[in-house]
């Protein structure tokens, strides 16, 4: 993202982005439970459109990608491609226990470890499946993150910095 928040046009873009994020949902191997809860979010009772959130079919229109479920081996390359199509700045929400760690499916033969092993994840939602309120909370958290990132001029400020060459040793020690 073109760093500065000083220019009027940039401020306008950031404002618009926080006020009306569009999201796309990708089912990367979920059991449908997360998917129906997301649709329930869009329905009259929970109604995420009051936050200006709109579900879009195409990743090219989206700001936020919601990944439902764990990632199967067959889906991993597709998920990566969908993620690559989203214009910057993009945010990823991983849904449920499966998105975070694989859930009940952890360690099966056709599974990646988690969503994070394919694409970077910004927000995790707990639950199997998360309730619609929790999904709304996650999206609102994501919006706050979006605002903060815009103020800091990018996502870099919240990335952990490796402590002077130590990580390589640490990972090898963990493996052994």
């Amino acid at each position: 993202m073109a760093g500065s928040d000083t220019g009027l046009s940039q401020r306008l873009v950031n404002w618009a982005r926080v006020k009306s994020p569009w999201l796309t949902v990708y089912n990367s191997g979920a059991c449908n439970a997360c998917d129906i809860e997301i649709i329930a979010c869009l329905m009259p009772r929970f109604d995420v459109e009051r936050f200006g959130i709109l579900a879009k079919g195409s990743p090219r229109h989206a700001d936020i990608l919601i990944v439902t479920g764990h990632v199967t081996l067959k889906q991993a390359s597709r998920l990566r491609r969908v993620w690559e199509q989203i214009p910057e700045p993009k945010y990823v929400i991983a849904m449920g226990a499966c998105g975070a760690s694989g859930g009940v499916f952890h360690g099966l033969y056709h599974m990646m470890d988690c969503v994070d092993s394919v694409i970077p994840v910004d927000v995790y939602v707990a639950g199997c499946p998360p309730r619609p309120d929790e999904i709304i909370n996650a999206v609102v958290t994501c919006l706050n993150l979006l605002g903060e990132d815009a103020a800091h001029g990018g996502k870099e400020w919240r990335q952990k910095k490796p402590a002077g060459g130590a990580p390589a040793e640490k990972t090898s020690a963990e493996v052994s």
Partner: peptide
């Protein structure tokens, strides 16, 4: 079969109590 997870194989490795949630 994009969502193939291998549940049938996993069910063979878990006892009846753990297989129900799966």
């Amino acid at each position: 079969s994009y969502n193939h997870r291998g549940i049938e194989k996993a069910a063979e490795q878990r006892n009846f109590i753990r297989v129900l949630p799966l």
